[in-house]
Structure formats: structure tokens, C-alpha cells
């Protein structure tokens, strides 16, 4: 079937089987490899993208189900050559090591800050609790999100 999804603001169309998972549609049909996957059971969250602004596990959503919706991926975080404060925060606070969970973590952070610009550490912990990081022990991810909350304006200015 033909599937059209708005990805990072651009309508993108590709031919895919109905069973195509959104993560595979993004990676294989559209060639956007920034979204990863790490499990089969919706536990790890490496595949998190934003659908209509909300973090969603793209391994547990059919691409067909995203038709007509807005999907935002890691490739859409940087805008007009400016890094998102979340991206900057992850670099500043050493919020990533192997980088595999990072796209999903950053997108969740972006959604959190959009709805709650000044979250507490506990709110950040809850927000990322559906996503596994095997490298950082989470502490620096939390610091990275907080950095973005505290420096958001100066980065985007």
C-alpha cells in the first residue's frame, strides 16, 4: 500500500506492506537511519519518535497507523542549522556514550520540555522511564535534559 506520513514537516510517501512497522518505514523506506530499535517487545524505547508531539515507540506502531499524522525524528531536531537545546545539553553533560538510545531520549526530552519547560529531576526520570540506556546510568541524561531546560532560550536565541 502507499503510505504518506508527514516527517519533520515534509510529507513523505512510500510503497510498503501493511505490516511495515513505523520504525522500518522510517529507516528502510525513507532511509532515515537516526531512529534505532533494540527489542521486540516495546520495552527499550530506542525507537521512540514523536507522533503529533508525543513520544511513541515506533516499533509498536504500523506505518499505516501514522498516515495523516506528524512524525518528528532525531533528524528533525536541528532546525535552520541550530541545534535543539536538548542536543546541546546531551553534549554538554556527557548524556550519551554509545549513542544508540540517544535519539529516542532526546525526542522524549523535547516533548517533556514542550509541555513542562522546567521539570524536576524526578519528572525527567519518569519521562525517560520507558527507554533503556545501558551506558550512562541515566544520571547524565537527567543532567542533559536539565541543561536544556536551563539554557533553552540562549541556545535557540
Amino acid at each position: 500500500m502507499q503510505i504518506t506520513i508527514t516527517v519533520n514537516g515534509e510529507p513523505r510517501t512510500a510503497e510498503a506492506e501493511p505490516r511495515t512497522l513505523l520504525v522500518h518505514f522510517l529507516r528502510d523506506n525513507l532511509g532515515m537511519k537516526g531512529t534505532h530499535w533494540g527489542c521486540d517487545t516495546s520495552n527499550c524505547g530506542a525507537c521512540v519518535v514523536l507522533v503529533d508531539g508525543e513520544p511513541v515507540k515506533s516499533c509498536t506502531m504500523l506505518a499505516a497507523m501514522a498516515e495523516g499524522h506528524e512524525v518528528r525524528t532525531v533528524e528533525g531536531l536541528e532546525r535552520d542549522g541550530h541545534l535543539d537545546p536538548v542536543q546541546q545539553g546531551f553534549m554538554e553533560e556527557h548524556g550519551l556514550q554509545c549513542g544508540f538510545c540517544t535519539p529516542g531520549m532526546m525526542l522524549t526530552a523535547r516533548a517533556l520540555l514542550d509541555s513542562n519547560p522546567n521539570p524536576t529531576d524526578d519528572e525527567i526520570r519518569v519521562a525517560i522511564s520507558g527507554q533503556i540506556c545501558r551506558c550512562t546510568g541515566y544520571k547524565n541524561i537527567i543532567k542533559s535534559v536539565r541543561w536544556a531546560a536551563e539554557h533553552g532560550e540562549e541556545v535557540t536565541a
Binding site: 508525543e54 513520544p55 511513541v56 515507540k57 509498536t60 527507554q131
Partner: peptide, 9 residues
């Protein structure tokens, strides 16, 4: 119940 991204769907 589950986790935030799962609860979103």
C-alpha cells in the same frame, strides 16, 4: 501501567 510512551498509545 507500562511507561510513558506506551501510555501515549
Amino acid at each position: 501501567i507500562a511507561d510513558p510512551p506506551v501510555r501515549n498509545r
